[in-house]
């Protein structure tokens, strides 16, 4: 590879920053802190992507970085803050399995990701694999967050973090085709998801309170004793 060691070290440093911020996200209990960490992660991601764009000489990645910066570091955190205030959500993001076990699970996931990706056949780029391992870890941690957090913001943060991992993976290798388009599409997806999530939540609140509606209108399950063939 025709680049100096520095460029890879730098890329890994930035990617590692994104991963670290995942753990920060896992660690946070308060909504405001989560949103802050999310914004920071967006900044780190934008930096990583931009660095890749510079290293690889792909100006398209600058656009992706800019989009990431604009959306994830600025727009989404602000939007989330507004929504939290508007919907009067709880301020604490409680976790289903506790912070400590959550961290342990996160470390285990990272270990799994490394186990899966790193045992390389000779000849393929070890360094590229490291990047992939980090991206995989970020994706898995994002999913973990979606699962262990009970708060809506938890879902959103997890999804966004997951998407950060995707962009990280996409921006890593050299010459992935359509990378900008894919990154944009992923961003659109996440934006739609978040927007849709809250829009539906808003409509839901307008319509009336009470969760678990799906299970009520046709409370399924036969009455006992009516066990036909």
């Amino acid at each position: 590879m025709g680049f100096g060691q520095l460029s890879f070290d730098m890329a890994h440093l930035l990617a590692g920053g994104v991963l670290l911020l995942c753990f920060v996200l896992l660690y946070q209990r308060r909504v405001a802190a989560v949103i802050h960490a999310l914004a920071l992660q967006g900044v780190a991601l934008a930096l990583a992507v931009a660095w890749q764009g510079w290293v690889l000489g792909m100006p398209g990645l600058y656009i992706a970085a800019l989009a990431a910066l604009g959306a994830k570091a600025v727009a989404i955190p602000i939007g989330l803050r507004l929504l939290v205030r508007r919907l009067e959500l709880r301020r604490a993001v409680d976790s289903a399995i506790g912070i400590g076990p959550g961290m342990v699970a996160g470390v285990a996931l990272v270990a799994l990701a490394v186990l899966v990706v790193l045992p390389a056949t000779p000849g393929s780029g070890v360094l590229a694999r490291e990047g992939l391992a980090i991206a995989l870890s970020v994706v898995l941690l994002g999913m973990l967050m979606m699962i262990i957090r009970r708060h809506p913001i938890g879902h959103v943060a997890g999804l966004l973090s997951l998407e950060n991992g995707l962009v990280l993976a996409a921006a890593g290798p050299r010459g992935l085709p359509l990378v900008v388009e894919l990154a944009t599409a992923a961003l659109v997806l996440v934006l739609t998801a978040v927007a849709g999530f809250f829009a539906l939540r808003l409509r839901d609140d307008v319509a009336g309170p009470g969760p678990g509606l799906l299970h009520q209108p046709y409370a399924e399950g036969d009455p006992p004793g009516k066990a036909g063939r």
Binding site: L109, L112, A113, V116, L140, M143, M146, I147, R150
Partner: peptide, 17 residues
């Protein structure tokens, strides 16, 4: 929904393991 996500996650983890 959290549990469903968990199941999907579990499936993925199972495949990775």
């Amino acid at each position: 929904i959290r549990q469903f996500l968990g199941i999907a996650f579990g499936t993925l983890l199972l495949l990775l393991v």
